[in-house]
Amino acid sequence: MPPDGFATGRGRGYRPAQVDAYLEALSADRDAAWERAARLTVLAKDMAAEAARLREVVSRLRPQEYDTLDDGARRLFQLALEEARQLRERARCEAREQVARAVADAEGVRLAAQEDADALRAEADERARQLLLAARAEADALRVGARRAVKEGRKESLEALREVRRRTADLLAERSREQAEHWAGAERAESGEAAALEAREAELVARAEEEVAAAGRALVEAEEYGRRCEEEAHARAATIVAEAHARADRIAQETERVLREHSATWDDVQAHMDLVRSKLTALTGQAVLE
């Protein structure tokens, strides 16, 4: 452990956090010393001003006369004056001593603070220089390591590039052989497929001719069947028309018969109504309205 209480760090001297904390503590002590010196200086000035004011007040006072007093009172008065003078002198001496001590303390505090600040600045400069040297050394080491790594990486990259080129050449040669074999197989397959297609085409043509002939025969049969159906339809239509005419005649005859029967029935009903009306007229003596 170093005398200042700092724990050493790996590769960088002291730990930055401890250095910052120590610097902050020293700065706080320095600020407190400056503040105390300022308070003592202000107190000394206030005491000097108060002493000057008291001297001025005392100088303005008129001397007290005690002529009417007897000898004993005069002696007591003289003793009191002498004691007051002695007290005043002692107070002045004590005030001067306090002022001198305050000034000395303030100067001592100022000098101590200045020395602490100078020492702290020198220590900070030295530590900053050490940190800068350590950082430069580490940067140099990193730069050397980086250059070495770049050289090694470049060598490995060149070897990898040569290997890739060799593999690419082998792959291209293999692809060329495979492509040649594929084209040869494709040509053979194409020749076989062409022969098969020609045979299939001949078979399809023969089958198409047979189907055309069958279609011609079916067309002739269909025309014959259509002609027969048309003749049968004409005959059936003539029969239906004749039956319709006969049925119409029967319906007309039946209608005339029904009309004749209804006419006879109407005549009977009319005669019966006339009879009833005449009876009502005879009974009531009034004509019945139709």
Rank of each mutant, 00 (worst) to 15 (best):
A128G: 11
D71E: 14
H262T: 02
E209G: 06
V109M: 12
G285Q: 02
E89K: 09
E230R: 06
E198I: 15
K279I: 02
T68E: 15
L142Q: 15
R85Q: 06
V269D: 04
A214I: 01
A141Q: 12
R62Y: 06
G226K: 12
T255D: 09
E187H: 12
A169D: 08
E138N: 10
A17D: 12
A128K: 15
P63H: 06
E256M: 07
L61R: 04
G185M: 05
A106V: 14
R167I: 04
A146H: 10
R228C: 11
L161P: 01
P2L: 07
V269C: 13
L54S: 08
R143H: 13
G72V: 14
A196Y: 00
A104S: 06
R147P: 01
T239E: 15
E138S: 11
L26F: 09
V212W: 02
A80N: 00
A102K: 02
I240C: 11
M47S: 15
A7F: 09
R121M: 05
Y66T: 09
P16N: 07
G9P: 00
Y14I: 15
A248G: 07
V109W: 09
D71V: 13
K155P: 00
S263W: 03
A25V: 09
V42S: 07
E89N: 09
L23N: 09
V220I: 08
A184K: 09
R257M: 14
R154K: 01
V205D: 08
E210I: 09
A141F: 08
Q18F: 13
S176V: 06
E198P: 00
I251N: 07
E94W: 12
V58C: 04
G216I: 04
D71P: 01
G145Q: 13
P2R: 06
A52F: 04
L204Y: 08
A189F: 04
L204M: 07
E209Q: 11
P2I: 08
R53G: 09
G216H: 09
L197Y: 12
A238E: 11
E231M: 12
L171S: 03
A252K: 14
V241E: 15
R74N: 15
R15C: 02
T281K: 05
L26M: 11
R166Y: 08
V99S: 06
E223T: 10
D70Y: 13
E94K: 08
A238N: 05
L79Y: 09
G226D: 03
R127W: 12
T239P: 00
A51E: 10
A7H: 14
A117C: 01
A119I: 04
Y22M: 10
A134Q: 13
A149I: 01
V212R: 15
S157C: 03
L81K: 06
G13R: 08
R154A: 00
E231W: 12
A95D: 06
L275N: 01
V220N: 03
R15Q: 06
D105C: 05
E35S: 15
R217L: 12
Y14E: 04
E159L: 13
K279W: 08
L161V: 10
